[in-house]
Write a protein that binds this DNA or RNA. Sequence first.
RNA 1: AAGGCAAAUUGAAUAGUCGCCCCGAUGAAAAUCGGGGAGGAAAGUCCGGACACUUAUUUCCCGACAAGUCGGGAAGAAGCGUAAUGGGUAAUUCCCAUCUAGGGUGACCUACGGGGUGCGAACAGUGACGUUUUGGGGCGAGAGCGCCAAGAUAUCCUUCGGGAUAAAUUUUAUGGAAACAUAAAAAAUGAAACGGCUAAAUCCCUACGUGAGUGCAAGGUCGUGUUCUGUGUUUUUACAUAAAUACAGAAAGUGCCGCUUGACCCCGAUGGUAACAUCGGGGCUAGAUAAAUGACUAUUCUCGACAAAAUCCGGCUUAUAGAUUUGCCUUGAUA
RNA 2: GGGCAUGUGGCGGAAUUGGUAUACGCGUAUGCUUCAGGAGCAUAUGAGAGAAAUCUCUUGAGAGUUCGAGUCUCUCCACGCCCA
Length: 113
Amino acid sequence: MLPRKNRLLATKDFEAINRTGSFFSFGEVFLKVKRNNSEETRIGFSIGIKFSPKAVERNRLKRQLREIFRKYIKKIEKGLDIMVSLKKGGKKEFSINELERDVLAVLKKAKLI
RNA sequence: AAGGCAAAUUGAAUAGUCGCCCCGAUGAAAAUCGGGGAGGAAAGUCCGGACACUUAUUUCCCGACAAGUCGGGAAGAAGCGUAAUGGGUAAUUCCCAUCUAGGGUGACCUACGGGGUGCGAACAGUGACGUUUUGGGGCGAGAGCGCCAAGAUAUCCUUCGGGAUAAAUUUUAUGGAAACAUAAAAAAUGAAACGGCUAAAUCCCUACGUGAGUGCAAGGUCGUGUUCUGUGUUUUUACAUAAAUACAGAAAGUGCCGCUUGACCCCGAUGGUAACAUCGGGGCUAGAUAAAUGACUAUUCUCGACAAAAUCCGGCUUAUAGAUUUGCCUUGAUA
RNA sequence: GGGCAUGUGGCGGAAUUGGUAUACGCGUAUGCUUCAGGAGCAUAUGAGAGAAAUCUCUUGAGAGUUCGAGUCUCUCCACGCCCA
């Protein structure tokens, strides 16, 4: 789990980043990025009920993504809001290695590392 | 031993590292140390309550006072609910016991199972059931027995080739004294009347119970800051206006309480056939708010199903790999 | 989290108090009309079997009540709406 200061919490922030953020994707993962006015990186995860109706699957994927970002958050450029999500209609279960590979690829593509 | 019936339990384990949520201690703070951290269904939201707010008819009784209002209690009506009998519970459509009906060799299983009249009459249906009239053939010496609705074809449709309806009957096999029963094949009929039946899972009555509605996004609270609107005051100004400030309303957002000690869990005793109740002792066991349980390493096994709290609790229903326990039944074997 | 509706041909949408399911409109197919197309007119149109008459099945799925269920009851599924 991420420390509270590194989490994206407010509904308002999610709406803003969803509307005006820059879009990057690789594999099954995509993310939207927007610069904020602070020194900290804030990360939010968006996996809705449309992705999977089972709460167990949604919670598991969010935990796995959080663990990956916990490992790499110090390398990511500071002062950004990031929203992470998965593509609908694809696979609903992933191994941690598959996810980590896709996340690293998309971060390099967005030039955040 | 095999097969089955009913009930209950469990839902991989151990050690270490990093990280998250809550509580406690220390500390000015940062932080450190210790403890706890999803389910039997957390699900569906199908019932029932607790709790909170809103609202409410008539009569009677009691109390308060500012004298027509408020608070408390009782009864009735309406509405709502239930439906074999008795019990359990905070309450229920739940649970327990018994009866009745049906199924099973049996252990057991299934069933909301009171009265009335078919929705005004008529038109409607009626597998199984009862009665009467009329007719037919079968068996039997007869009393009688049980069978069928009628005469070798019928009715309807047709593109005239055929098609639809389906029991007695006939033939064969087995059993039986016979009518007949069972199975297979062939061929093929369609009297009447009355009764009974068809409704709380659409109506009416009866009995019993019960205020109603909305739901923790209920609701409460110290507030807090932002934007907009209106009103008042002060200052400036000839006025308009601008600024400050107070009150009211609206919008979006947020802190705290509600929020976890509860119809709670475990053990024992007593009462009861049982559901359950009472008493005694011990225990504290998630409380989040973009929403906490993950990742990595090592070892072992039977290689791990369905699936994750969101005010709380009691039921029902649905999903669920596998493992375990208890009681009982049937069949067989041995003594 | 809590609460509440809906589901009928390819599409929309009817169906009296439970009594012949699919009225009506759109669409589609065929024919007529036209030099041709459109518009218009006529016929057909849930599925399966059949040359046809006709038979069987069908109201999201599965059970139940009933002589009889699109309608009443229960369970499941799908798709929606409202509440700070």
